[in-house]
Amino acid sequence: MNIEEAVKAVKEPDGAAAREAARRWDRVAKPLNSLGELERDVIRIAGAQGSSTISIGRKAIVVMCADNGIVEEGVTQTGQAVTAIVAENMAAGRSCVCLMAERAGADVIPVDVGMASCSPVKGVLWRRVASGTRNFRKEAAMSREEAVQAIETGIAIACELKAKGYELAGSGEMGIGNTTTSSAVLSTLLNVEPELVTGRGAGLTSAGYRRKVQVIKEGLALHRPDRRDPVDVLAKVGGLDLAALAGFYIGCGLCRMPVVLDGLITAAGALAAVGICPKVKGYLLASHRSAEPAGGIALDALGLTPVIQAGMCLGEGTGAAACFPLLDMAAAVYGQMSSFEEIQVEQYQHLQ
């Protein structure tokens, strides 16, 4: 399905289902709103799924893997060969997100949408659009056609998950250099200076950090991406992983499947998705507030409050993996706990 068709087909979350879920929480025999953001997330899940009887039994974390030409500019501590190495570890179940997801009862699905390795990596879903992006300090990261193809790839992957019976998705990424692309995208979409949304990534010296900011500024000055057109922004200074993530969120909205964000990079993709299709916002859940400075800024722009404050900034979808058990616990309370009526106790009332 192409972008235009998908965007037209995405429906607003079901307000009636969300309201009924809120009423159900009020009847659960515990103090009102005492599970905080977890209650609000269950309500969002009900609206996304279109039913107050929520179901989040089968879960998967989709990890978009891609390389970024901007690493030529010395904005990272490691080389882009690490992307394929980590993706291979994901396929073998050895990476951080896999170990965490196993405990959370979730599957991890690494996807090659743009790695620079010469051949497919065993166990990694092959959906490669190009073998990495170009150096956006010198030329556009990709063509508009490549960005569109990556977005549509993400849409298709979400639809494939839904067809296989998954009920709750998580999102992650792997790509050396993608905090630089994410900062460039966020700087444009939020119309703020790069310094505000740029951090040290996986570890940069102060000189390296200054270089990273300068590279982003020079790339933005060269290409002047149009923040009213997120596809243009992704193509000029983004990455194939970001574009695929944006499409994945649109696809989740299309399939009425709630999706949990990880940190900074997945939030940057989500902002692009919401810019393309505003209705997608109602299908998004925030796992944690990233230690990267732009992580909280991006969530605030999306109007999302995370359930975890742990200083995490690992990526890979680890935030979603950490969040899933909390959502399972909240769903158990929501669906199984007695009501005030059942235990014959007067129900709490909302006070002014």
Rank of each mutant, 00 (worst) to 15 (best):
R210F: 06
P278L: 12
E292I: 07
V63N: 09
S55V: 13
S338K: 14
P120H: 07
R210C: 13
A320I: 08
V71S: 05
C313L: 15
L189Q: 02
G79I: 07
R137I: 02
S95W: 00
E37L: 11
G247D: 07
L327T: 05
E292N: 12
M142T: 08
V28N: 02
D112R: 06
V333T: 12
P278A: 07
G295E: 07
F136V: 06
R289P: 00
A91L: 04
P110Q: 14
M115Q: 06
N68R: 14
R211D: 04
E145A: 14
A321C: 11
A331N: 00
E173F: 15
E145S: 15
N191S: 14
V233Y: 03
K30H: 12
C96V: 12
C252V: 09
E342C: 08
V42I: 15
C313H: 14
R23D: 13
S95V: 08
D67F: 01
R40D: 13
L351N: 09
V62W: 01
L161K: 07
S117R: 04
T153E: 02
G319T: 03
V333P: 05
F248T: 04
F136E: 00
G47V: 03
P225L: 03
Y166S: 05
M1C: 08
Q80N: 15
N178I: 13
D14I: 04
Q309D: 12
V231H: 01
W126H: 12
L302F: 11
